[in-house]
Amino acid sequence: MVGDTLLAAVIALLDVLIFIGRTAVAPSEQPAPQPWYITLPVILGVVAPIVFRRKYPITAAYVTLGFGVAHTMLEIGVSSMITTCIALYTLVAYVSRRSGLLYVAMNEVVALVQTPWQFPDQWIPTLIVVNLSLAFSWALGEFVGARRAYHAELEQRLRLLETERDQQARIAVAEERARIARELHDVVAHAVSVMVVQADGAAYAVRGQPDLAERAVKTISSTGREALTELRRLLGVLRSEDNGGERTPQPGTQSLSELAGRVRAVGLPVQLDIVGNVDDLPAGVGLGVYRIVQEALTNSLKHAGPGTSATVRVARVGDRVDLSIVDNGKRTSRSLLGVSGGNGLIGMRERALVFGGTLEAGPRSGGGWQVTATLPFGGN
């Protein structure tokens, strides 16, 4: 409002100077102006609404129009024309085209009635000047309004981009936490299952078969060390993305034979069949294959019972990998619930879905448990 107040003061000053100049001129040269107590209130009524034009644009415009009629009839100066143009510009730029068009129509009606009656000899040039002034004000209002709309849209887009960036950051954090949770579950669940089975065996054999108990304890020790190594790797990723320490490579399909050997050493006979070349699979697909096989064999260890054997088949068919992990163990209803509803199965399915694949797990009709999965790669 400070700028608009200064603008109104400058316009009022112009009219005051015109009034003073006309007062100083001899009455014989032109008609004497109206008395100051009429002139000054009319000037104030014309320019005062300009101060409030941004806060009350429509009210200010029509108050200006009303006082402008009296100002023009008294031929006080130029402020009525200037303030009318400013009011039209404000309506177009800050309110709407409809409000501006209605204001132009009102001004045209007033001009067509007042101008021929007040200026019968010059009413056509006067109307041309009035219309050109209104057209210029409209064009200026359109330009400023378009720039304001552009800046408003730009600010809105920036806010949306900031919101989208924050949401993407939260999604990335959630995905990373889910990935780490799956990795931790796979590492810990497999290692703990192996260690529990070996510890139970060592407890039974410690008196009658000390050699067997010693091998079981060694297996527990090596399994624990491997689990600690993988946990350190995961925690190292959490601490820093640029860790200069030693990194353990991620397991993949090339580690399946080692995994099968560890499970056999625990007491679960495993037959591993690999069809096709699976050594050059993408790292993510290879890790997914390894973790699915690891989780399925871990479930067999925990729930299948004694005398169980398992068959693992990994086949590369074109641009996909087919997995089949089958055991012949007998599960109780409680263990079936544990396998089907636990985090392990959820993790396996998520690993398959990451690559657009599928995974199914459930009891076999002839007994035992089966996990089948398909992981596409290549163009995906």
Score class of each variant (00 low, 15 high):
57 P>L: 12
371 V>Q: 05
333 S>C: 00
210 P>M: 11
331 R>F: 05
372 T>L: 12
286 G>H: 02
280 D>S: 09
235 L>P: 00
250 Q>C: 08
315 A>T: 03
106 M>L: 13
9 A>L: 15
226 E>M: 05
323 L>A: 03
154 L>D: 15
272 L>G: 04
90 T>Q: 11
347 G>P: 02
334 R>C: 06
27 P>A: 15
36 W>F: 15
289 V>C: 05
262 R>V: 01
112 L>V: 07
247 R>N: 09
40 L>C: 05
258 E>V: 11
189 A>C: 08
172 A>I: 05
348 M>A: 12
5 T>K: 08
89 Y>K: 04
53 R>P: 00
138 W>G: 02
160 L>T: 07
351 R>Y: 04
305 G>Y: 09
15 D>T: 01
341 G>Q: 13
310 A>N: 02
346 I>D: 11
121 D>F: 12
316 R>G: 04
173 V>M: 05
209 Q>T: 14
268 L>V: 05
34 Q>L: 05
247 R>F: 05
205 A>K: 12
370 Q>R: 14
225 R>E: 14
130 V>Y: 02
17 L>N: 07
312 V>A: 01
145 G>Y: 03
22 R>G: 06
304 A>V: 04
271 Q>V: 14
167 Q>R: 15
176 E>T: 13
358 T>I: 03
325 I>K: 02
108 E>G: 10
183 E>F: 03
39 T>D: 00
211 D>P: 09
378 G>E: 10
310 A>K: 00
112 L>S: 06
159 R>M: 08
